[in-house]
Nucleic acid binder design. Structure first.
Length: 449
DNA sequence: TCTGGGGTCCTAGGACCC
DNA sequence: TCTGGGGTCCTAGGACCC
C-alpha cells in the first residue's frame, strides 16, 4: 500500500515558544540567538519581514534591532525541549506512527486516512496543537517525505493554504513543483543546487523529470532517491524508534577567550562530563576520545591555531572520571602558550554497548563499582538538575557560554513559573487553591520588569 | 568587540589479506 | 619483457539535515 506522510513543522519554533509566555509580544518582531548570543537562529515573521537573515551574526544587524525595537532572546533549550515534548505528545493523538524528526518537526503516518479529507484532518491537527500548547504548526501532506516537506513549505508561504496543504494525488502538484526552486527541496543543499543549475535544472519539476543516469552520475544515489521521492516513490520510511548515536560530540565556544591550561582543562573536563552523560543515556561505552581546541578562526589579526588529539581507550568506558582523565591528557598535548582559545570540544567515538564490553587483561578499574557510581550520579542529577559535578570542571567557570537575554524556565522549574495576576474577587471561588497560588514563589524576573 | 552546535550517510582510495 | 585479482575494512572528506 502506498504510504501517506504528513509533516508537522512548528512555525518559527523558538520565537513561538518565547511568545507563549510573553503574549504582549504577539505581532511584535522577535529573534532568538545561538549559544553565546552569537547568531540569529530563529525569527518571528515580523523579524523576517524586517530583513533579518537566518544565521546572521547579531552584531551585523544591531542597527535593525534597535531601529525596530526587535526583542532579542538567548536560546533557552530547557524551555524549547519541554515545549517540543508537549507538541509531540499532542501530535501522537492523531496518528498510529509518529517520527520525531527534530525538536520542531515530526512526520505522521496518515496512510490509514486514505480517501478521507486529509486537508481537513490537517486543520484539526493544527488547531489542536495551537489550543493545547500555544504553538502554531503547519502541516504538509504528500506521498513521500520529500513531498510532505515541500507541501509544508508551501503551506507556510501561501496565505490561501492557511498552514495546511495536501499534495496527495493533487491536481496542483505539478504547479507546486514548478514553484519550488531546487535549493528549497529537502535533500538539495548548496553543492547539489550549484551542479543542477549548471545543468539548467532550476525547479523541483525539472528535477523530477531529469534523466536518472545523469542524476546518478552527478548527485549519487542520495540525489537519485530525492528524484524518486519527487515522483511519488517513497524511499524513506518512518523511523519510529530513535537509533543510538554513533558519535557523541560536545563542543562550545567560550564566553570569553581562554589563555591558560588550567581554564582549558576545566572546560574540556566539563564537556567530557556532558558527553559521558549522553553516552550513558543510550547505554553505550566509548573506545576512543578526541579533544580539539582552536583560536578564533575569524580573526585575521591574531595567530590562528587548531589542534586535536585522539586517544584510544584500553577498555571502552562510560565512566565520567575516567573519560575526564583521558580528555585532560589530550588537552595537555594540544595546549599551546600564547594562544587565545575560543572554542574546544570533546568527541566520543567507536561506541559500543555498555553491556558487552570486551575486558582488558590489564584493566585496573573496578567496572561494576564504576557503573553503580555513575548510576547514582545520574539519578541525583536527574532529580536536582546538575547537582553534582567533578572538581575538574571548576566552580566559577568564567569561560562559560553567555546567555545574556535568556527567558525563564517557565515549564520546568517551580521557582520560575509564570505569575498570573488576578483579582481577589475571582479567587473567592477557587477555594483551597487560593493559598497554593499565593504561596507559589514569585518569578523575580517578572517582578523586576 | 561581537560569527552556534550536533548529527547522518555515501564515496573514493589506501591498506591489507588470501 | 614479464609483474594477479578480488575482497574487506578503515578513514578522510564531502554532501546533507536541523
Amino acid at each position: 500500500m502506498n504510504p501517506i506522510f504528513a509533516l508537522a513543522d512548528c512555525n518559527n519554533f523558538y520565537a513561538s515558544c518565547e511568545r507563549v509566555f510573553a503574549p504582549a509580544l504577539e505581532n511584535q518582531p522577535i529573534v532568538v540567538l545561538s549559544n553565546n548570543d552569537g547568531c540569529v537562529v530563529a525569527r518571528s515573521n515580523e523579524a523576517k519581514t524586517l530583513g533579518i537573515p537566518i544565521g546572521v551574526p547579531v552584531f551585523q544587524v544591531q542597527n535593525l534591532i534597535q531601529t525596530h525595537q526587535i526583542r532579542v532572546y538567548s536560546s533557552n533549550y530547557t524551555l524549547y525541549g519541554d515545549m517540543s515534548r508537549r507538541v509531540m505528545e499532542t501530535l501522537c493523538q492523531f496518528t498510529p506512527a509518529l517520527e520525531i524528526y527534530s525538536i520542531d518537526e515530526a512526520f505522521l503516518d496518515l496512510t490509514g486516512c486514505r480517501g478521507q479529507d486529509l486537508a481537513g484532518y490537517g486543520r484539526t491537527i493544527r488547531n489542536t496543537v495551537k489550543k493545547w500548547t500555544g504553538i502554531p504548526v503547519s502541516i504538509g501532506i504528500g506521498r513521500t517525505k520529500t513531498l510532505a516537506k515541500l507541501a509544508n513549505r508551501l503551506a507556510k508561504k501561501s496565505a490561501k493554504a492557511a498552514g495546511v496543504l495536501d499534495l496527495t494525488d493533487s491536481p496542483h502538484l505539478p504547479l507546486a513543483l514548478e514553484n519550488t526552486e531546487i535549493q528549497d527541496i529537502w535533500g538539495v543543499g548548496p553543492g547539489f543546487a550549484k551542479r543542477l543549475r549548471q545543468a539548467g535544472i532550476q525547479t523541483a519539476l525539472q528535477l523530477r523529470d531529469a534523466d536518472d543516469g545523469w542524476v546518478r552520475k552527478h548527485l549519487g544515489v542520495v540525489g537519485l532517491r530525492t528524484v524518486y521521492e519527487l515522483r511519488g516513490m517513497s524511499c524513506y520510511g518512518l523511523e519510529l524508534s530513535p537509533t543510538d548515536k554513533k558519535n557523541i560530540v560536545v563542543s562550545k565556544s567560550f564566553g570569553r577567550k581562554i589563555e591558560t591550561l588550567e581554564e582549558l582543562s576545566e572546560a574540556v573536563a566539563a564537556y567530557a562530563a556532558r558527553a559521558a552523560e549522553k553516552l550513558r543515556r543510550q547505554n553505550s561505552a566509548a573506545a576512543a576520545l578526541t579533544v580539539f581546541a582552536m583560536t578564533d578562526l575569524f580573526r585575521k589579526d591574531q595567530s590562528r591555531y587548531f589542534n586535536s588529539r585522539t586517544i584510544e581507550l584500553p577498555t571502552p568506558t562510560s565512566d565520567t572520571g575516567e573519560l575526564i582523565r583521558y580528555a585532560l591528557e589530550a588537552a595537555r598535548k594540544i595546549y599551546r602558550k600564547n594562544c587565545l582559545f575560543k572554542k574546544a570540544g570533546v568527541m566520543l567515538n567507536a561506541l559500543t554497548s555498555a553491556d558487552h564490553i570486551q575486558a582488558n587483561l590489564f584493566d585496573t578499574i573496578d567496572r561494576p563499582r564504576s557503573r553503580r557510581l555513575m548510576d547514582t550520579l545520574d539519578r541525583i542529577n536527574a532529580s536536582t538538575a546538575a547537582a553534582l559535578h567533578y572538581a575538574a570542571e571548576g566552580l566559577a567557570q568564567p569561560w562559560k557560554t553567555r546567555f545574556q537575554h535568556r527567558s525563564a524556565h517557565y515549564t520546568t522549574d517551580w521557582s520560575q513559573l509564570p505569575q498570573v495576576k488576578t483579582h481577589t474577587a475571582c479567587l473567592w471561588h477557587t477555594g483551597p487553591s487560593y493559598d497554593k497560588i499565593t504561596k507559589l514563589p514569585i518569578n523575580r524576573r517578572e517582578t523586576e520588569k
